[in-house]
Amino acid sequence: MSIKDRVIAIIAEQAVLEPSDVALDNTLEDLGIDSLGLVESIFAIEEEFDISVPFNANEPSESDFDISSVRTIIAGIERLVKEQS
């Protein structure tokens, strides 16, 4: 599975949706994922890819990791996997 599909699978599980129901332009809010769901998703992503995601829930916009949509999250993970491998 590609990084994109693996990230979508994690987000879909968190949102209790089928992966096919997760669109790249969706925000986490669109998918019904709240702040606790977000940190749980990030944990699951870190475990899946064995990476460290630089995300601070106090200042999401200051973090060097864009969570504004599924697309930006996937792009961020692809970059981190490349950098940290």
Binding site: L36, E40, F43, E46
Partner: peptide, 8 residues
Amino acid sequence: RVHPFVVP
């Protein structure tokens, strides 16, 4: 790494 819900 620990699960984020350990504290709550």
